[in-house]
Nucleic acid binder design. Sequence first.
DNA 1: CTGTTAGCGCATTCAG
DNA 2: CTGAATGCGCTAACAG
Lengths: 357, 357
Amino acid sequence: MARDNFSNDRRATITDVAREAGTDKPSISRYLNGETGVLSTELREHIEKVIAKLDYRTNQMAHGLKRGRNRLVGMLVADLTNPYSVEVLQGVEAACHAGYMLLICHAANEVDLERRYLQLLTTYRVEGVIVNALGLKEDTLESLTRGGVPVVLVNHAVERLVTDMVGLDNTEAVRMAIRHLVSQGFDELLFVVQPYAQVSSRRVREAAFLDTIGVLGVSKVSGATIVLDLDNDETLVEIDARIDAAQRQNRRIALFAANAPVALRVALHLKDRHGVDWQRRVALMSIDDSEWAELAGMTTVRQPTYTIGECAVEFLHERIEGTVVAARECLLLGEVVVRASTSTTVPSQRIMAAHSS
Amino acid sequence: MARDNFSNDRRATITDVAREAGTDKPSISRYLNGETGVLSTELREHIEKVIAKLDYRTNQMAHGLKRGRNRLVGMLVADLTNPYSVEVLQGVEAACHAGYMLLICHAANEVDLERRYLQLLTTYRVEGVIVNALGLKEDTLESLTRGGVPVVLVNHAVERLVTDMVGLDNTEAVRMAIRHLVSQGFDELLFVVQPYAQVSSRRVREAAFLDTIGVLGVSKVSGATIVLDLDNDETLVEIDARIDAAQRQNRRIALFAANAPVALRVALHLKDRHGVDWQRRVALMSIDDSEWAELAGMTTVRQPTYTIGECAVEFLHERIEGTVVAARECLLLGEVVVRASTSTTVPSQRIMAAHSS
DNA sequence: CTGTTAGCGCATTCAG
DNA sequence: CTGAATGCGCTAACAG
């Protein structure tokens, strides 16, 4: 009974507050926008009380309509199934804290959905968009930027498009990984990668692999690439064949997965084939430090996912504020996390060394 | 040069379209809202052309302001780090497809943030909220529902609150798990659970465990609960002690983790203690079928996460439409996924049997 | 079938 | 310092 007079479902509006306070809307507006010192102390206190009483919350929709900015930022994620994306999302979300609200869209790996969602975001007049998608064509994004909506790309470059982009330094990451493997005595490297539709990061990683191997070739380290379609296990037998061949020739082979999903698929297969202690038979490392890497004892390159997310909204923010104009690119360094699978200093690897000699 | 006349940054409004088309706003509006047959074919076609030319997109903010509904739905997630939450999120996202846009908030396990975010969502006038949070108090949510915003709770009940709720049938899930373990010959069960602040699901799971064990007690199966704080490893030694004691007495003990994070923590510890083939020494199962369960060969209870998400938005949708009034509760069944860790029919388990006999 | 008018909730002029 | 008037982009009544 105490505060039942305003429980009539509809939220209080600024008009309600003005009426209840015996004044008018602009005064309330001023109070809300912190134009302090422009209101008499008594009025301010009175307004404060009324707002609390009515449980008033300013309507961002109306506010945005008038002000031209609604503090909404969109994020397009190609695959929430991929822990990498979720980690980036967390970074983004945390950074948005500063004053943006995140409208997220999950395209579930469907290119059509990506485009549709982008249009939908446009419809909500988001002030900017962070894109972590794969199949986006140049023109789709261009229609956004042409409409004046800033775009930041995550881990993915789009040809001929001037946008900010932030992501892992793929080339250096691959180099670091190879350096590690070589230092551990592996002399045959098999890079396993998903078929890269238009995915620039996959392409870059493979190129970096082949380049680096090319340089190392003289020093007796050989390498090859193999394309693994996650929905089709056929290529797994080819991997097996390579492993067997290498071990027959007393070469120390290591598998290098281009990302976490690939690593998981390969690990599962190896476990099926070699049993729970598959790590002792075959060395596996990957880009992406997934949740289970520690449990599997698998060496990885950890991406600074959280930082990537933070950096993305920082870029976006600056662009929304109009501070910068030139397109920037931020490539962050990864970090090799050495675990038993590729390390000669731990028991499992000693066994492998024994095996191959 | 062809279409450069309208690239002046600002998106075209309905007024622009009307002017360009030589007609007025309501006609455009009618066209947009598909009030077909109410417009002359020629006008319709003309409007269509102009809209395409100007690349017009209706402004959802203005639309919502007028219409009273903006098709925005909020989702509050306590912990995006937990794969369970992400899976539910995916289901929700997919179901929203029907016509809602998801505004997501990640509270990062901070109770304060949960409340603040809920208020923020309120500010955007979301039409409903799906809550997968932990520390929410009754009054916080009540202020929402009192404001006329429907709320659906995921896997978490709040005392004395009338809201829809959807989640796993925890009691039955625990029963199924215990039945499985007992059928595999385990006669000592250790239920490992996080300290349950106000988390009803954890409480329910523990209660179900103790209840079921109580019934089974007569048939020589004993069980106990142990509380594990993820940030503090002390209780891990207690788990070790229990395992050792049981094995000394030739009892077959199985650990039962109440959720995935607990399972991972325990698995990591067991691996540290027993090596890569820890599964052969200690049986572990858990609720939540995480990504790595297959790789670790761990038996789990798989939650119908995706369905939970779908069901949540279905409930929300009905409530937004005002179809239903009474609070409903939807408890979905889990599914035991048997893997090597608890199965007597696979090699790893045979070894364990040998060990304990 | 089309055009006119009014108002959603708010912020921004401008007078008082 | 405060209050009346105007418009953001759109839709819902109405009238023509």
